[in-house]
Nucleic acid binder design. Structure first.
Length: 380
RNA sequence: GGCGGCGUAGCUCAGCUGGUCAGAGCGGGGAUCUCAUAAGUCCCAGGUCGGAGGUUCGAGUCCUCCCGCCGCCA
């Protein structure tokens, strides 16, 4: 864009960096991107390659036009650091070509267990869509290699609807967020509030509120209610059977219904990268469990000596907590680990197969850890 | 200029394939409980579904125009 200098002259500057720009010409090697348009189109059509759909459409519209060949080298005279062009040491490979190969280097060679090229999903920010939706797949296709099977393109975090910038002074430091709410709290907030197709609005206040409400209060308190020695002196988790729910009447059958349908819905939302919707479903289940517990009033059942119903109530609630912990593993792994540890769930029983109600007669000892999964954060 | 996306309660969103003229969470107000991370539960208030017109028995949902925001191309 054109800006006016103090001396009255006008200067063109970059719209992003505000640094002066000028015309010049030089010789470079070019990558024949123009010859790859059809291959890129074929890749785009091969499935839900780019999501959300708006970004897929954007790349599609770029491929509706001719592609211009891409400069991929610079004269060594002004770019001495880097990989020399094979057979012509007067030119250096431009960094934005070879840098992308780091994805492949890590994926293919770091550990034998992880030879996973092409990746099933590559997560990127929307600002680098052209590189990852056009150039990178083109380089790979030209080399006879497979591009990623899909790209998940997410929006940006704004602050009060404004881009973060040093100039505006509204930059949010991830480390300061972690210091305040822990990595778990930050992750939870980002996944809870992140709608892939649109930019999010970041707020420290809102982050604390959401982390507290869900991780400390909703789930953390529920687990505390069940695991406390007051209601659970033997510190065990009893098995659940259909009669566990039946003996709790309507509240039991209502919770059973919720518990049965939630995992599939969550799975479908996760598959579509709609983590925020999946989290909504999980939290609805948590609220259902708290409501069930409140209705059953196990502290009264204990006083009255109704041990069968007390046991059923505890078993049902703890089974629900187990499912919740399993469902939330992709969202908040270490929090879920603590939860599942507290419930005495073996490591081999934490995969997705166990992210649903399971009938069992097995009695499991609770972990001896402190039951505070997520301390409430003081703020304001 | 052309094309595309978005606009639903204070905030974040769902609903968007026409049918209880709208829901959830957070926030706010009130009540209640004490097993529990002062948590839980219940109740209430909050909505011109950007605006106008149209189609239809019926529109937040379909069509047209306008307003605002964002993006791509030129």
């Amino acid at each position: 864009m054109l800006v006016k200098l103090p001396n009255g002259q006008e200067q063109r500057v970059s719209t992003e960096s505000n640094r002066p720009v000028e015309w010049f010409s030089e010789e470079n090697y070019l990558f024949e991107l123009s010859k790859l348009r059809e291959k890129l189109r074929d890749w785009l059509k091969s499935g839900p390659v780019i999501r959300p759909l708006r970004h897929y459409n954007l790349v599609k519209s770029w491929l509706d036009q001719e592609l211009i060949d891409l400069s991929i080298s610079r004269p060594r005279a002004r770019l001495s650091w880097g990989i020399p062009v094979p057979g012509d040491s007067s030119q250096t490979i431009y960094v934005w070509l070879d840098a992308l190969l780091n994805y492949m280097t890590v994926a293919k060679h770091s550990q034998s267990k992880m030879n996973i090229w092409p990746p099933s999903v590559h997560v990127i920010g929307k600002d680098i869509l052209k590189f990852h939706g056009i150039y990178w797949p083109a380089f790979l296709l030209a080399a006879g290699l497979e591009p990623p099977k899909s790209l998940l393109v997410h929006g940006h975090w704004l602050v009060d609807d404004q881009k973060m910038s040093k100039t505006t002074g509204n930059v949010v430091s991830p480390q300061s967020c972690i210091n305040l709410v822990t990595a778990t709290g930050l992750r939870y907030f980002l996944m809870h509030e992140g709608v892939p197709a649109s930019d999010g609005n970041f707020s420290m206040k809102r982050m604390v509120r959401i982390a507290n409400s869900d991780l400390a209060d909703g789930i953390g308190n529920l687990v505390s209610r069940c695991c406390g020695k007051s209601l659970n002196p033997l510190q065990t988790r009893l098995g659940v059977s259909p009669s566990s729910f039946e003996s709790c009447g309507t509240p039991g059958s209502d919770l059973l219904s919720l518990l049965e349908r939630t995992p599939d819905i969550v799975h479908d939302e996760y598959q579509k990268w709609n983590f925020y919707k999946g989290i909504d479903q999980v939290m609805a289940l948590v609220r259902g469990a708290n409501g069930f517990f409140q209705t059953m009033e196990p502290w009264k059942l204990k006083k009255e000596g109704q041990l069968d119903q007390l046991n059923a109530t505890m078993a049902v609630t703890l089974e629900t907590a187990r499912v919740v912990g399993t469902l939330l593993q992709p969202i908040v792994p270490s929090y879920s680990e603590r939860l599942l540890d507290k419930l005495g769930v073996p490591q081999e029983n934490r995969s997705w197969d166990f992210a649903r109600l399971r009938w069992t007669t097995t009695e499991t000892a609770l972990g001896s850890q402190q039951a505070v999964l997520f301390p409430r954060i003081k703020f304001d």
